[in-house]
Write a protein that binds this DNA or RNA. Structure first.
Lengths: 152, 152
DNA sequence: GGCGAATAGTTGCAGACACAACTATTTCGT
DNA sequence: ACGAAATAGTTGTGTCTGCAACTATTCGCC
């Protein structure tokens, strides 16, 4: 309840805040030579894991933590590249399916090893197994806490 | 060196990735009613801690992990609000100082408690002292590792 | 059954940011 | 001491994203 952070708290917090930016930049940079962004890659991953390799736009937006309009435009680009298709839903004509194409699946399979290696190199290896478990536990707690008060 | 992540690794990694987005959004949302963004707030913090409460643009950009042009525009906005001033440097006429104003310092002092409370609420409290130390240690390792290979 | 509310998606618009190109100034090698 | 290279900052441009407004469809309650 104090007004300020302790030295320790401040050091930890800044370590975190400043690492995140560099980390994301490094992952993005590792993926760039393979001709895809993290954003598009994540779409491929979610769709590839989904039932029939397709998702409703709104569910996909939720999974990606993206606004509806943001997803619309991201998908526009991916459709242009032939990685996904839009398909209409017969049972609910409001929804649009985002459907992974064969090309998209191939792209994902082609790029995934590089991304996995990148995550390993920048995060998992430096932290070690113990550290990775800690990471998961810490952010699990943060996540639970955040979801407990979504609109506070 | 495996091609994929283990279940454990995947769970930890996704916990992290998805938490970060929500966490930043929550911090931003807590600050918004006070009429300032995280980005501008961080500028105020850095300047308030700096010698004579001013920094060279390039140093400030580095501290904020922002591109030169990004900082130029952010400062434009903050100058408009009267929180900072630009000043020229007599010893090196290439550099522009970003100088915190009294108004800017007051603004920072006024909103800081809210931000500190927000960080406590969303991160430090859920993690506890042990967790906070772990957080700092983990990202210290990530950060060291990243800085070891800046342009790889 | 029918009308208001909720939900799915897209589009217009504005903001934040990075990269590239440019100017101005300083530093360094010879 | 002079010219090339490095450094500091700004501006032009394009991309990504979110919010607000809008249409279309479905759901729920009377």
């Amino acid at each position: 309840m104090t007004e300020w952070l302790t030295e320790r708290e401040q050091a930890s917090w800044r370590n975190f805040i400043m690492s995140v930016h560099d980390l994301m930049a490094a992952l993005e940079a590792d993926l760039a030579p393979h001709g895809i962004t993290m954003g598009d890659y994540e779409v491929l991953v979610w769709l590839s894991e989904a039932d029939e390799q397709r998702m409703r736009m709104c569910d996909l937006a939720g999974a990606l933590q993206l606004s509806p309009s943001g997803l619309t435009r991201r998908l526009d680009g991916m459709v242009r590249q032939g990685w996904v298709q839009r398909a209409s839903c017969s049972s609910d004509r409001r929804v649009a399916w985002a459907q992974l194409t064969d090309t998209g699946l191939q792209k994902m399979q082609q790029v995934a090893p590089a991304h996995v290696a990148s995550v390993r190199r920048h995060v998992l290896d430096p932290l070690g197994p113990k550290g990775v478990d800690q990471l998961g536990a810490l952010f699990g707690r943060v996540r639970d806490h955040l979801q407990a008060l979504p609109t506070a």
